[in-house]
Amino acid sequence: KLLSSIEQACDICRLKKLKCSKEKPKCAKCLKNNWECRYSPKTKRSPLTRAHLTEVESRLERLE
Rank of each mutant, 00 (worst) to 15 (best):
S40D: 00
L53F: 03
C27S: 08
R50M: 05
L18W: 11
R59D: 00
E55P: 00
R14H: 07
T49V: 05
S40Q: 07
E23R: 09
E61G: 15
K42H: 10
L48T: 03
K26H: 14
A28G: 09
C30H: 04
R50C: 01
P41D: 08
T49L: 03
A51K: 12
E7C: 10
L60K: 09
E61C: 13
K22P: 04
Y39W: 10
D11Q: 09
C13N: 01
K17N: 06
L31V: 13
K1M: 14
C13L: 05
L2P: 14
S40M: 07
R14V: 01
P41Y: 04
P41E: 10
S4Y: 12
C20P: 01
S46M: 05
C20R: 02
C10H: 01
S5A: 09
S40N: 06
L53A: 01
I12H: 13
K19P: 06
N33K: 10
E36Y: 08
A51W: 04
L3R: 08
I12N: 08
V56M: 08
K19H: 06
A51I: 12
L2N: 12
P47T: 01
R14T: 05
R45H: 03
N33Y: 12
R38F: 14
K22Y: 04
K1I: 04
L2A: 13
R62S: 11
C13D: 00
K24D: 12
K16Q: 01
K42L: 12
C30W: 05
E55M: 14
C30F: 03
K16N: 06
E55N: 12
K44P: 13
E36P: 13
K16C: 06
N33I: 03
S46E: 01
C20G: 04
K32T: 14
R45Q: 07
P25H: 00
K26E: 11
S46N: 03
E23N: 14
E64A: 05
E23G: 12
R59P: 02
K17V: 04
C30I: 04
K17W: 06
R14E: 00
E64I: 11
C37Y: 07
E57G: 01
K26Y: 11
P47Y: 06
K32I: 11
P25Y: 02
E55I: 09
A51Q: 12
C37K: 03
E64H: 10
N33V: 07
R62F: 11
E7R: 08
E57R: 06
K16V: 00
E55D: 14
T49F: 03
P47M: 05
S21Y: 01
P47S: 07
A9G: 09
K32M: 13
H52Y: 13
T54C: 09
L31M: 14
C37L: 02
R38K: 11
C10I: 00
R14F: 03
R62M: 15
K44E: 07
I6Q: 13
L53P: 04
Y39M: 05
S46Y: 02
C30N: 05
K42D: 04
T43C: 14
C27D: 04
I12R: 10
C37N: 02
W35M: 12
L15M: 12
P41Q: 09
K19F: 00
I6D: 08
E64L: 09
R62E: 06
S4F: 14
C30D: 01
K1N: 15
R14W: 02
R14Q: 06
D11A: 01
T49S: 04
R62W: 08
E36A: 14
S21P: 08
S58D: 11
L2H: 14
L48G: 03
N33R: 11
P47C: 05
R59Y: 03
H52T: 01
S58N: 13
D11K: 00
K17A: 03
L2F: 07
L48K: 06
K16P: 02
A28T: 12
R14Y: 06
E64P: 05
C27N: 02
P47D: 08
K24W: 15
